[in-house]
Amino acid sequence: MSESRHIALHVNGERREAETPVRQHLADFLRGTLGLTGTHLGCEHGVCGACTVLVDGRAVRACLMLAVQAAGRAVTTIEGLAAADGTLHPLQQAFCDHHGLQCGFCTPGILATLVEYLAENPDPGAEDLRIALSGNICRCTGYDSIVAAALAAARALRGEAA
């Protein structure tokens, strides 16, 4: 068994191929190997949620998945959220509008969590959102502005006026 493998996967809609050490987790692969540094590492033991990305549409902790396990999968990171023309995703816009980020370190993981959650729950209540967000730690905001931003994004995604 060699210590590294060549893998192919889709990242943000693009096919990518690269060599990865088998012991490397997905977050280090995205950041170090592919240069997608928008995914952040806050704890590397699966608690803080900063490294959350979407794998086949599901929010997962990228520090708790080996890069080799992503072979053949579709991964979406913060860099893949905005439209091709640069227009921000409604969640991104809402976070800017509602001061949903301060240092911005936890934000990419929070957005990944919310992309999946709002897809399945287009009209959530504030308390449901808090439970959905409980696996993402933010040390800056106290969360109120994040919940407000998520509610606004949900309205925008439903096609209502923000």
Partner: peptide, 8 residues
């Protein structure tokens, strides 16, 4: 856990 850990 949380949604992200239950997904895996």
């Amino acid at each position: 856990g949380h949604i992200q850990t239950r997904n895996r």
